[in-house]
Nucleic acid binder design. Structure first.
Lengths: 186, 186
DNA sequence: GAAGTTAGTAGACGCTTGTTTACTCGTCAA
DNA sequence: TTGACGAGTAAACAAGCGTCTACTAACTTC
């Protein structure tokens, strides 16, 4: 009756990492238990700490696994507001965006990972974004734009996909583009 | 050695409520323990549930205690962006703003109080704000503005009072005013 | 002054958490 | 075939959580 489990260190490690990425993004750091990760990965709970050391270190590795702010930051500066607006508008409907952002929004109140999240937000969002901006106060303008991104995520988390009940997708994008222009423009 | 504790039902109730308000605003719902509230209020832990029923109901009463979005929403519509900008700019430096907002930002990932927070954000922020807006899509525009407010709170929580390292207070207010105008304007 | 009400207290309850230990057993080199 | 290595497992660990019960003692009422 009991299945013969295959021995696959790298495979198991990857299953745990994937399960943790999904759960952390969906629920936030301290709503996710080690047992939930183990169940989602179909692995024994003791293997998590064997391969990653601790829950905290697993979370750090999940964040480190993710790339930079996906694609949005490439391209000329004058198109940045539009791309950010489309990114946010898409995120408002389907919740399948950056894990860094999702984890940030849902985990920023857990003090034990505060430093991990802060460093990751800096290196993945704020620094590349402000590096793309010309003019004075680039860091501040990038922070305001980042606040808008995280804030829409929070509202989306509170109210679900229909958070901002706007009739038309294009209206949403146009409005958000104007807002990001006000954030980022000189 | 043991002090004779005076019997003061209403006073004790108020001490617990005040302590809970401070701690929830500072740390968020599930970082605050019943024992921490009892210690901060200098009261016995069993009295919390005697007077409020449960931690969840205490949190709800803390939110209900708070008034509406403080003062910002009064006055003519065309001055709204400026007042919101000044409110946010002040909040970015000293963290003594609305408890509703602070608790929201730090507690929105706790599913057991999700509904409480959502209802409170609707009645205290979104509804009065969108009621002040003329033109189409008032609810959506109010949501975007609310996202900016909560997002700056999140960034502030991550990076502390020096989150947005802007040289001048007036620069910050001017920038935020423009952003809120883009959010709220027709 | 006696009796009753009730604010306040101490401590335990059951449960969940992250973490660790002791063990089983599949795999592969000698 | 035998031995060692190590992936995988089950169970327990201590600590912390929200909640609840049994009790003490201060106040009110008659």
């Amino acid at each position: 009756m009991d299945e013969t489990r295959q021995r696959d260190r790298e495979g198991t490690r990857r299953r745990i990492l994937d399960a943790a990425r999904r759960l952390f993004a969906d629920l936030g750091y301290d709503q996710v238990t080690m047992r939930a990760i183990a169940a989602e990965a179909d692995a024994n709970i003791a293997l998590i700490n064997r391969y990653f050391g601790s829950k905290r270190e697993l979370f750090a590795e999940v964040l480190a696994m993710q790339g930079r702010f996906p694609g949005v930051l490439e391209g000329p500066e004058e198109e940045l507001p539009r791309r950010l607006a489309e990114y946010v508008a898409d995120r408002l409907r389907s919740d399948q965006g950056s894990v860094v952002l999702a984890a940030l929004i849902r985990s920023s109140s857990s003090p034990e990972i505060h430093e991990i999240i802060r460093d990751r937000v800096s290196s993945a969002i704020l620094e590349p974004l402000s590096a793309r901006l010309s003019g004075p106060d680039a860091a501040f303008r990038a922070t305001v734009a980042a606040a808008l991104v995280t804030g829409t995520g929070t509202m989306r988390q509170l109210y679900g996909p229909d958070a901002a009940a706007a009739p038309d997708h294009e209206v949403v994008v146009a409005r958000l583009t104007a807002v990001f222009e006000a954030c980022l423009g000189m």
